[in-house]
Amino acid sequence: MKFEVSKEAAQWYIDEMELKQGDYVQFYVKLYGGIPTVHPNYSLGVEVGKEGEVIIKDVVEGVTFYFNNQDAWFLEEYDMKIVVANGEADFIFTKS
């Protein structure tokens, strides 16, 4: 289980969400609709703020990108890297 946010992707989120150093960006699991994933019927949502216990994180450009204790199961068998492709955040999942 590995979670990585590229510097370019972090900057993309900073620009898009008007983030500042010290902010937290939570990725959370939801049914349908949102960022497509390797788990059928599940997608990812994104929101600013810290909720729950931070289980897996990557701090880039002073911003903490994370999954909390409730949603960490999502990466149990996968590594996830966020990059920028075609001007948008792109999510790359690989089996760990």
Rank of each mutant, 00 (worst) to 15 (best):
M17Y: 04
S96F: 07
Q21D: 15
F67A: 09
M1D: 10
D15R: 08
Y42R: 00
G62W: 04
D90V: 05
L31A: 11
Y78M: 14
D90T: 04
F65Y: 07
L31N: 14
M80I: 12
V60P: 02
V38P: 01
Y78G: 06
E61S: 12
Y28L: 08
V29L: 03
G62M: 04
E76T: 11
D23P: 07
Q26T: 10
V38S: 00
D15A: 09
K2F: 06
V29A: 00
K50P: 03
F74D: 09
V29D: 05
Q11H: 02
S96V: 15
E51D: 14
L19W: 10
F91W: 12
L44M: 03
W73S: 13
M1F: 10
E77F: 05
T37R: 00
E77H: 08
L75Y: 07
D15Y: 06
I82D: 07
E8I: 01
E51W: 09
K20G: 14
A85Y: 05
I14Y: 11
I82Y: 04
Q11D: 12
V63I: 13
A10M: 10
V59G: 03
I82R: 00
G33V: 01
S6N: 04
V48E: 12
V59H: 00
Q26K: 15
V54P: 11
E16R: 11
K95Y: 12
K81W: 03
D15I: 02
E77D: 11
I55K: 11
E47V: 12
K81I: 08
Y28E: 06
K7P: 06
V25E: 09
W73C: 09
H39E: 08
L44G: 06
G22D: 12
K30R: 15
F74T: 04
T64R: 03
E47D: 12
K30F: 04
D71C: 09
I56Y: 07
W73I: 06
V83A: 08
